[in-house]
Design a protein around this nucleic acid. Structure first.
Lengths: 343, 343
DNA sequence: CTGAAAGCGCTTACAG
DNA sequence: CTGAAAGCGCTTACAG
C-alpha cells in the first residue's frame, strides 16, 4: 500500500539491501568498473530481488551521454525507407543505443523539429529521406552532435552522409538497356531537388552519352505512384513512343508497367522495357518481375551507425558510397532478345 | 575557445544574463506558471540570445514524466504497419510526446527489450503488430506505465487495445462474396497465433454459416507473400478449385493473384475472385485493383494515443473497436456479374 | 510575483 | 576495492 513499494527501486534501495554504498551499486552496473566479484554478486542479487535497473535518464544527465539517437524519417509509405528505418533501429539497439524517432512530412519542418530532438540530449542524429539546412547543421555541430544523412548528401561541413553509388548504379542500367538493343530510351526522374534523383539521372544520361545514345525523353514523377502515372501517360501518348524506360525508383516503375499494360495495351518487355531503382519487395512479385538496382540497406545502415559513433568520438565528417548492384529480371529485354530483334 | 561556450546554455546562464533566478527561468518555460509578462520577456530574450532550451532529460528526472513514449513495432516490411507507425509518431509529436522506438523481430523478444524501454522512463508503451506476456504486462503496470496494443488484443488486466472491427469487416466480405454468386469460397489465414487472423476467420466463416454456405477450403500463409504463394499453389492445384478466395491481408491476396495469373493462367475475377484485408497502397494499383477491407489507420492511432494519455491519468484499461469498411474493387465479381453467371 | 533551498537518481573523482 | 561527497540541469513547495 506504500506507494514507494509499487514504484521502481532506486540504487539506494539496492545498496541498503546489499549492505553497500550507492557507489558500489553504480559500479556493479558499469562495464569495467572496479568491484570485487563478491560485492558484485551481492548487489546483483539484491537488484534482482527488487527488480532494480538503473534509471537511464539520471545516468544520462550525469554522464552527458543519453545513449539515445535521433532518427528522422520523412516518407515511410516508401517501402525502401521503411526497410532503412527497421535496419537502423535494429542496429542502434544492438549497439546499446535507443532510437528517438521523428517523423516529418516535409524537409522544411526539420528546422523546427530537430531542436526538440536536441532538447532530449540525443547523442547524434540520423536523417533518412531528407536533408537539413546549414543553420540546423551548425546548430548540431555546436552542440557536438554528429549528423548522418542516409540516401542524401549535402555540401556542408560537419554533416556525414551514406548513399548508394547512385551514379554507378544508373550507369550499369544504361549499359544493360543499350545492350538489350533499345533505341528510344527514356528517363523518369524522382523529386527534382534530391541528390538521389539527380545522381541517378547524371549517371544514366552520362553513360548513354559515352555509348553514343541520346536520351529519347525525360519526365518527372516525384517518386510517387500517382505522379508517375501521369508522367507515363504523357510519355506513351507520343506518336513515337520509347522502347525502354528507366525510373528513378521502383514505385514509379511499377506505375509505368501498370499504365503501359492497362491503358496502352502494351506488353512488358516486348513493347516496352521498364526498370526501377531500390529493389523493393514488390519488384520481385511475379506480376512485375522488375529489373532494378539493388541498394544494400544492410551496408548502408551499418555505415551510418558507424559514422555516428565515429563522429561522436570527434572523427571528421565523411561521405560513404555503398556499391550498387544491378538486379536483372523479366521487365527488361536482355542481350539475346535485343540481338534477336535487331536480326 | 572555452569549451563551455560551445556547449548548450543552462538555465543558470540565462538567469544571470536576464538578472533573475533559475526559478524564474524555469517558470518562463513552464505552461501556466506565475511569471510577470515583463520578466518573461526579459528571460525569453536572454534565452534566444544564448540559444537556450530546457534540458528535457533533467526536466524529466525531476517531474517524473519523461514525455517519451515507447513505440514497439514488429514488422515494418508490412506497409500497413509502416503507415501505423508513421501516423502514431506524428500524433505523439503533436501531443508533445517523443516516440522512443523499439524494433523487434519476434514477439518473444519483447520480454527482454521492453525493460530497456522502461529504463528510459517512458511514460507509456504502444505496441503494434505484437503482443506481450503477462509478466511483462504486470511489470509495466507496477511501474505505472500504461500499455496499448494496436491491432492485437490480449486478455490481461491493465492492457489497453485498439483494433479494427475484424469480425465485422470479415462478415461484410462474406456478404459481398456470397452476393457475387460464388459457390466455392476459400479462406487464407495469416499468422495462426494472432487475434487479427483469428477474428477475421471467425467473422468470415461465421457469416458464411449464417448464409448457409460452407467454407470450401482453408490454408495458411503467415501474412507473407512467399508463404501465401505456396498455400495458393496447393489451393489451386486441387481437382475442383475455389472460385473465390478471401485472404487475411493484402500482401497474401496479391500473392494469390500473381500465382493464379502466372502459374495457373486464370483470370481474376472471371475465374477466381480474390480479396484481401488492410487496403494497403498496392491494393489500389491498376495491376491488382484489389477488393479489400479498409482499416482506418487515422482513427486507430488517434484512439491509441488517446488511451495512452487516459491510462496515464489512471483511467481503466479498455478495448476500442474501430469500424471497418469494405472497399470493393475489380478483383471480385460483383452482384450483377454473379447474377449473370447464374443466369 | 520572486528567490533560496532541497531534491530527482545517478556517476565519478577523491581519499582511504 | 570501497564510501562520502559533490554535482549533472532542472522544478517545486516554501517563504517572503
Amino acid at each position: 500500500m506504500n506507494p514507494k513499494s509499487s514504484l521502481n527501486a532506486r540504487s539506494i534501495d539496492v545498496a541498503r539491501l546489499a549492505g553497500v554504498s550507492r557507489s558500489a551499486v553504480s559500479r556493479a552496473f558499469t562495464e569495467g568498473a572496479y568491484v570485487s566479484g563478491e560485492t558484485r554478486a551481492k548487489i546483483l542479487k539484491a537488484a534482482t530481488q527488487l527488480g532494480y535497473s538503473p534509471n537511464a535518464i539520471a545516468r544520462g544527465l550525469i554522464t552527458r551521454r543519453s545513449r539515445m539517437v535521433g532518427v528522422v524519417v520523412a516518407d515511410l509509405s516508401n517501402p525502401f525507407y521503411a526497410r532503412v528505418l527497421e535496419a537502423t533501429c535494429l542496429k542502434l539497439q544492438e549497439a546499446g543505443l535507443a532510437p528517438l524517432m521523428l517523423s516529418c512530412r516535409r524537409s522544411q519542418d526539420l528546422d523546427s523539429l530537430v531542436p526538440q530532438l536536441l532538447a532530449y540530449q540525443v547523442d547524434g542524429v540520423l536523417i533518412a529521406a531528407s536533408t537539413l539546412s546549414s543553420t540546423l547543421a551548425s546548430q548540431c555541430a555546436r552542440a557536438g552532435r554528429p549528423v548522418v544523412l542516409i540516401n542524401r548528401y549535402v555540401n556542408l561541413d560537419a554533416v556525414n552522409a551514406v548513399t548508394c553509388d547512385n551514379v554507378g548504379g544508373a550507369r550499369a542500367m544504361a549499359d544493360h538497356l543499350v545492350q538489350g538493343g533499345h533505341k528510344r530510351i527514356a528517363f523518369l526522374a524522382g523529386l527534382e531537388d534530391t541528390s538521389s534523383s539527380r545522381d541517378r539521372e547524371r549517371g544514366f544520361v552520362g553513360r548513354l552519352g559515352e555509348l553514343k545514345v541520346a536520351l529519347f525523353a525525360r519526365e518527372s514523377g516525384n517518386y510517387t505512384y500517382a505522379d508517375a502515372c501521369s508522367a507515363v501517360r504523357r510519355l506513351l501518348g507520343r506518336r513515337l513512343r520509347p522502347d525502354a524506360l528507366f525510373c528513378a525508383n521502383d514505385t514509379m516503375a511499377i506505375a509505368a508497367i501498370d499504365i503501359a499494360r492497362h491503358e496502352f495495351g502494351l506488353e512488358v518487355p516486348a513493347d516496352l522495357s521498364v526498370a526501377g531503382y531500390d529493389n523493393i519487395e514488390a519488384a520481385s512479385w511475379k506480376g512485375y518481375d522488375l529489373t532494378s538496382v539493388d541498394q544494400d540497406v544492410d551496408r548502408m545502415t551499418d555505415a551510418a551507425v558507424g559514422l555516428l559513433q565515429n563522429g561522436d568520438k570527434g572523427g571528421k565528417p565523411r561521405h560513404i558510397l555503398v556499391p550498387a548492384r544491378l538486379e536483372k529480371r523479366g521487365s527488361t529485354r536482355d542481350v539475346r532478345a535485343g540481338a534477336m530483334r535487331r536480326a
